[in-house]
Simulated assay, not measured.
Amino acid sequence: MAETTERKRTQVDDIDRSMYDFRYDDADAEKLEAGLTSEIVREISERKDEPEWMLEHRLKSLEIFNSIDMSDWGPSIDGLDMDHIVTYVKPNTDQKSDWESVPDNIKDTFDRLGIPEAERSYLAGVGAQYDSELVYHSMQESAAKMGIVYSGIEEALHGEYADLIREKFMTLIPPTDHKFAALHGAVWSGGSFVYVPKGVKLDYPLQSYFRLNAKGAGQFEHTLIIVEDDADLHFIEGCSAPKYNVANLHAGAVELFVGKRAHLRYSTIEN
């Protein structure tokens, strides 16, 4: 008779959330009204000085959002009411390339999360987003000399790769996929654009980190990565937010295009 061994019941220890559950007052942040309307969508686009095609994409996505039912997969989200979600929150700063120029409250947030230390130790580039906008972005000169492009996607919309972004944007995750894809297409803000040329191999990772600080808000960053033939990249994304007693929403999107014989390692870490 075979022996049977009683298995002890195990459980995951409670996670220490002390490094995440802190927040700063957001009274000096610029917020749009809560809710989801065409006026709000137009204002987001206008604030970002977007090309006309992107505004059209946003408005079409809003139309799709309003025309399709909520997805029935996943956990219940009956408590989510978009009329009470602020879709755009701009922190009290513009994007910086020098860490010491970032406002103290935002700098302290990312210091406590270990982002500057990681950049110094083993990263080839870092982007940090606070609520709806990038507040810091930097890449090592050696990576730039290899022809690698790593920037905020909004910045890239106005540069050399604007046509490429238009060709690829939300083609892997079209707004018709489901209601939250449509929501993202309407109100996306911030995120990363990465382009690795053919045959280029980066030895150290790039990392973007997204921090949702504002209570009752949403974060909708868009990441678009293109790795050409025979190239190699490791990209890390992190996301965290304090715990609130009201609904917050994170509905980002990631699109990854990998060429022939290329290698992309994509890692995501969320609290």
Rank of each mutant, 00 (worst) to 15 (best):
residue 50 E to C: 07
residue 6 E to M: 14
residue 253 A to M: 08
residue 217 A to G: 04
residue 159 G to N: 00
residue 263 H to I: 13
residue 244 Y to T: 12
residue 95 Q to P: 14
residue 234 H to I: 09
residue 182 A to M: 01
residue 134 L to H: 13
residue 111 D to T: 10
residue 229 D to Y: 12
residue 61 S to N: 00
residue 122 Y to T: 11
residue 96 K to V: 10
residue 221 E to F: 05
residue 239 C to N: 14
residue 248 N to Y: 14
residue 219 Q to T: 09
residue 91 P to N: 01
residue 252 G to T: 03
residue 233 L to V: 02
residue 222 H to I: 10
residue 86 V to H: 07
residue 97 S to M: 13
residue 162 A to Q: 04
residue 254 V to H: 04
residue 204 Y to W: 15
residue 33 E to T: 05
residue 186 A to Q: 02
residue 93 T to N: 05
residue 101 S to F: 14
residue 52 E to Q: 09
residue 271 N to R: 05
residue 32 L to I: 06
residue 162 A to K: 08
residue 116 P to E: 01
residue 251 A to Q: 08
residue 93 T to W: 10
residue 246 V to F: 07
residue 43 E to K: 07
residue 145 K to N: 07
residue 188 W to K: 10
residue 20 Y to D: 09
residue 145 K to H: 07
residue 125 G to P: 05
residue 86 V to C: 07
residue 155 E to M: 10
residue 259 G to Q: 02
residue 197 P to D: 01
residue 111 D to N: 09
residue 43 E to T: 08
residue 8 K to A: 15
residue 165 I to R: 07
residue 89 V to I: 01
residue 102 V to R: 03
residue 76 S to A: 09
residue 13 D to I: 14
residue 58 R to Q: 06
residue 264 L to H: 00
residue 167 E to H: 10
residue 236 I to M: 06
residue 234 H to Y: 14
residue 245 N to H: 12
residue 234 H to T: 14
residue 228 E to I: 06
residue 33 E to V: 09
residue 121 S to D: 14
residue 161 Y to Q: 11
residue 196 V to Q: 03
residue 253 A to R: 06
residue 41 V to F: 03
residue 18 S to C: 06
residue 137 H to P: 11
residue 221 E to M: 07
residue 266 Y to D: 04
residue 140 Q to H: 11
residue 202 L to E: 10
residue 269 I to L: 12
residue 80 L to I: 06
residue 124 A to T: 09
residue 245 N to I: 13
residue 74 G to A: 05
residue 95 Q to T: 15
residue 261 R to Q: 13
residue 183 L to M: 04
residue 15 I to R: 05
residue 62 L to H: 00
residue 17 R to T: 13
residue 9 R to F: 13
residue 83 D to Q: 07
residue 68 I to A: 01
residue 68 I to S: 02
residue 180 F to P: 09
residue 191 G to F: 10
residue 103 P to A: 00
residue 166 R to P: 10
residue 226 I to M: 12
residue 1 M to F: 14
residue 79 G to H: 08
residue 177 D to Q: 13
residue 114 G to S: 04
residue 185 G to N: 02
residue 21 D to N: 01
